[in-house]
Design a binder for these strands. Structure first.
Lengths: 136, 136
DNA sequence: GTAGAATCTAGACTTCGCTCTAGGTCAAAC
DNA sequence: GTTTGACCTAGAGCGAAGTCTAGATTCTAC
């Protein structure tokens, strides 16, 4: 077991580019120093992929690299700081919920605009919608 | 009526910086050429503010400047292209809904992690959470 | 044993969306 | 009338998050 994976394998498994994986490493986002083959090639394992998949979720949901780095550092520094990790994750959870709320509010405005245009386009009477005087 | 507003007034009314307002103008995001005072100062009106507030919603919800510019161009070019404006807004609405769905999916993963850490921190037994072997 | 694909490093470059600077001009309060 | 603050232009700079290049090396398949 614990067969090691090349950077290309990991790129394929995570959707990250090989460039991004090297960048992540420079940015200290891994939970360990990635070992190398005799020739200097990186040797990943399944746990690295696992971690990257979580990273993807955190990144997709708007966590900045800097915060991800702080989280990785906490994990890397071993047991004892779990309350800190928890607080970091909770804070991110709050920010994601807030972002969803913000988007939902925007959506109402946007959908309202869509509805206005739908009515006017249906009517064929689109005059006075936004030019020169705004309709709303 | 139709008292004109200075760039500072508009900045205060919209939350955009004066720099951003000049930038928006360079980027052709307004619905008209903003008139100037004798001394060259910009003279905005309430409709400009109205439009900027909509722009804020579109930007906050992730619309790129380039798309906003396309929308502004459609409006500026007068009646006749309402179906195009509608399609642009509908497309944006779709993308906002998709983004909300994506965030909601991430939220589940993140909340799952939070729950794991909560249990372990509560127990006092945080061993084996993510170091060296991942828990999930 | 050799061709071709994958990987290595260091560092330059890109895109987006502003933000800030420099060096002035204009306007309003005292 | 002068000081103070707001505004002007043009253009440089910035932070985030990678992406891409060049040139060298290693690995894999025949």
């Amino acid at each position: 077991m614990a067969a090691s994976l090349s950077i290309g394998d990991v790129a394929a498994a995570t959707g990250l580019s090989v460039h991004a994986l090297r960048f992540f490493e420079r940015e200290d986002l891994f939970l360990r120093d990635i070992p190398r083959s005799a020739g200097g090639h990186r040797l990943y394992d399944a746990a690295d992929v696992e971690w990257l998949l979580l990273c993807n979720r955190l990144r997709e949901s708007g966590m900045p690299i800097a915060t991800l780095r702080r989280f990785a550092a906490l994990v890397r520094s071993g047991p004892g700081n779990e309350p800190d990790r928890l607080e970091l994750l909770r804070e991110h959870e709050r920010s994601v919920r807030a972002r969803i709320a913000e988007l939902t509010a925007c959506l109402e405005v946007i959908h309202g605009k869509v509805a206005v245009y739908e009515r006017h386009v249906e009517d064929g009477t689109a005059a006075g919608l936004w030019a020169p005087v705004p309709s709303s």
